[in-house]
Design a protein around this nucleic acid. Structure first.
Lengths: 242, 242
DNA sequence: CGCCCCCTTGAAGTGTGTCAAATCGGGTGG
DNA sequence: CCACCCGATTTGACACACTTCAAGGGGGCG
């Protein structure tokens, strides 16, 4: 489930994700590689899309973590969604931006332009990968709402780590139980609707319980099966590999 | 802002909403009216789309309230999004359903088939209305996350009522300060990530403060300007009327 | 009339926030 | 190489928003 699917060794992780969503033609892969040649670097904490601005041209996250965020006038911050390598930015369906949100780099990020899909058999090709990527994005939003609305702080953290693991695995960026975690505890708090103090307490607790290990920007999850059960985790069923 | 835009007196509220999103051709309106002729009634509490089932054929909510909901194995329930008259069901982009969610009627609901859009000038027609409707749906998801993640119970209720007002106004179903509210306090709690007991307490408080009036399935909001400021409410800017 | 669902209210418990201070670690400049 | 600094993490004590549990009341409907 969490193993890399496409597994074309020379390919960017971001493109592995797209290739995992739908089989790509050689020409499309070439177009991706070509787009990646002229990539754009964004330092951490920099805004990628400012609030209310027209979306950037359609882009792909090549590396690094970004997020969509809502900032309240009194300073409260809520991270609305995560953007990981292989995720798309600015593929929105409508002309004008509706959202009172901006997109911010959480770590250093590299972006490249998203090649326009070409005609292909239904169910294959870049067009299908983009479609599925959008559907997954919506799925993750639903999961985020359920997480924040009904899970305890402890459960939110677990559920969130399981999702990150699932998503990074699509791009071959997470092994079965080891998940990169380059965020500050404050960013985590902003994503989960908590305070950084409380996030810290829960992480300590989980470590003491032997549920997770935290080392150098990595989490190791122990007994994933049990953890999934604990938070009633339902993996997104992307029909992979065919 | 919250006045009815399309205002074709004889038209269903649901269709007023679509007409407000994009100017429709006479033939498209005819197609809608025709679809409404064979509508489907769903009683309250009945499932419309079961979890994991393939989506129904694309449909329009003609009347009543429904919601997308996530049910946890231990009985916890979280309402993920609201479906109001004029909203679309099953317009998803991908073949298979990804979500571990179902769609349930909160009140009695009537549905009709969503006519396939026909070619039209960009920015007009049913196709555009469907597009914008989808974009709005995403926008409301973002708002829901920010609401649940960062607002207090009191603020969540206000913010949510302001959103319902905005959305119903699109279909000419809410006047400036009077908003239909046909949900039980328990359903409200499930939407806002609270308990029904606490929802009740906050509603009592708001009534005592003179912020709202509750009468017969209607809320009356007093001093909306101030309420918007209180929760930093950002209306969805649908460029209406042209 | 009596049942059931929903709303209402109280008292007590607890999960999470707030405030504050100490420690850690990595980078920078002297 | 050390001194310093800064942001991030860690920990404690206390406050409070929200939940839990429980009981009572009101209204519609068979």
């Amino acid at each position: 489930m969490s193993t890399c699917v496409a597994n074309i060794p020379t390919l960017e992780p971001a493109f592995q994700r797209l290739a995992a969503l739908a089989p790509l033609g050689a020409d499309e892969i070439a177009a991706l590689v070509d787009a990646a040649a002229s990539s754009q670097r964004v330092p951490a904490h920099r805004e990628i899309v400012a609030e209310g601005q027209p979306a950037v041209r359609p882009s792909i996250v090549l590396s690094g973590w970004a997020c969509r965020v809502r900032l309240f006038s009194d300073g409260r911050r809520q991270i609305l969604s995560l953007l990981l390598p292989g995720d798309l930015i600015g593929m929105c369906r409508q002309r004008e931006p509706l959202a009172a949100t901006s997109i911010v780099a959480l770590t250093a990020v590299t972006l490249c332009r998203a090649p326009a899909p070409r005609e292909a058999a239904a169910g294959t090709g870049l067009a299908e990968a983009y479609l599925l990527s959008g559907a997954l994005e919506e799925f993750y939003l639903f999961r985020h709402i359920a997480r924040i609305g009904r899970l305890s702080a402890y459960e939110r953290l677990l559920d969130w780590m399981l999702e990150v693991r699932e998503r990074l695995a699509l791009a071959c960026l997470a092994s079965d139980d080891r998940v990169p975690l380059p965020l500050t505890q404050e960013a985590l708090a902003d994503a989960l609707g908590l305070t950084s103090v409380h996030v810290n307490r829960m992480l300590q607790l989980m470590r003491r319980e032997g549920v997770i290990e935290l080392t150098g920007g990595m989490v190791r999850l122990h007994d994933i099966q049990r953890l999934c059960q604990l938070v009633d985790y339902r993996p997104g069923r992307v029909r992979v590999g065919q």
